[in-house]
């Protein structure tokens, strides 16, 4: 391949070394914040003040973690981030499940049961992906008020489901259009109907797409801040909002070790998703990109 040229001259060998050096330096740039967060969270506040960013903790302790989890102040409340962590879980699970399931059915229809106007519908949905959410949040707040939906978690499930549908539909539709029509035709000749074909044939072969979709939605919803801060208040706020409150509204002494522990806790779920489903995560990102 292209690198053959590199092994020929000493100059090329130096060039090759340079490439590795640049790649390694960038690896350090990306890893540094994670390293700093972890070591800071394991230090005592005194050590944070006296030491420096990169120093390893002299006596590693999880005290900052337990403070962050159960007694740190997020605004006026001082009961840690645990409640908000569970809020995010309670919002995440139904929103991901609903948007994935509805997206799968939509994609199935748009790929295999096209009707007059279905392509237009898909186009409209895709254009919706480009909207900056700032342009819909004021009416959404009004509408949630009309609906009388008071519970912040329920509001966020609804909002995340609705605004996730464009992407989940796209993932499944783009997968199902690659399935040969003959499969559906044969199944119909055998007497299978719309729902049977979906549940018995399509869903079982969609597992990779389901993984892409679930991972995409999980990271989107868990990491969201705008909807969280706009549509929920007080005790129903999600994790990201609580973390921001903890970092930005604390007065007096800044507990950097606690802040870092809280930030890591907030990052852990999506980091785990990335660690275990990285392949699907990247596929989702690039699928979204190809779409634009």
């Amino acid at each position: 391949m292209a690198d053959l040229a590199y092994h020929q001259t000493p100059a090329a060998r130096i060039g090759r070394f340079g490439i590795y050096a640049v790649l390694a330096l960038f690896a350090l740039y990306y890893l540094a914040p994670l390293y700093v967060m972890v070591v800071t969270s394991l230090k005592s506040l005194e050590e944070v003040r006296n030491g420096n960013l990169l120093a390893l903790p002299a006596a590693p302790s999880l005290e900052a973690w337990s403070t962050a989890w159960s007694s740190a102040c997020t605004g006026v409340e001082c009961s840690g981030i645990q409640g908000y962590f569970w809020n995010s879980i309670k919002m995440l699970v139904p929103a991901v499940a609903l948007s994935t399931l509805i997206g799968a059915v939509n994609g199935y229809v748009l790929a295999m049961w096209r009707f007059k106007g279905s392509d237009l519908f898909f186009t409209l949905l895709m254009i919706g992906c480009f909207l900056p959410f700032q342009v819909v949040i004021l009416p959404m707040a009004q509408m949630l008020g009309f609906l009388g939906l008071e519970n912040g978690t329920a509001r966020l499930v609804l909002v995340h489901t609705i605004y996730g549908l464009a992407f989940t539909t796209m993932f499944f539709r783009n997968f199902y259009v690659t399935i040969p029509d003959e499969l559906v035709k044969a199944a119909r000749i055998d007497g299978a109907g719309f729902l049977r074909i979906f549940f018995r044939i399509m869903l079982p072969i969609s597992l990779p797409t389901i993984a892409v979709c679930v991972i995409w939605q999980t990271t989107q919803i868990w990491n969201d801040f705008l909807f969280g801060v706009v549509f929920s208040a007080g005790e129903t706020q999600p994790m990201t909002v609580a973390l921001n409150n903890l970092v930005n509204t604390s007065t007096g002494v800044k507990h950097y070790n606690v802040e870092m522990a809280a930030a890591i806790i907030a990052a852990l779920p999506t980091l785990c998703v990335y660690a275990f489903g990285g392949k699907y995560f990247i596929r989702g990102l690039t699928a979204g990109a190809v779409k634009g």
């Binding site: 914040p33 967060m37 990491n223 801040f225 970092v247 870092m260 907030a266 990052a267």
Partner: peptide
């Protein structure tokens, strides 16, 4: 894979 809030918190520190 991280939230911008986490990124902001880390870099702020």
């Amino acid at each position: 894979a991280l939230s911008f809030i986490v990124t902001g918190t880390a870099w702020k520190w």
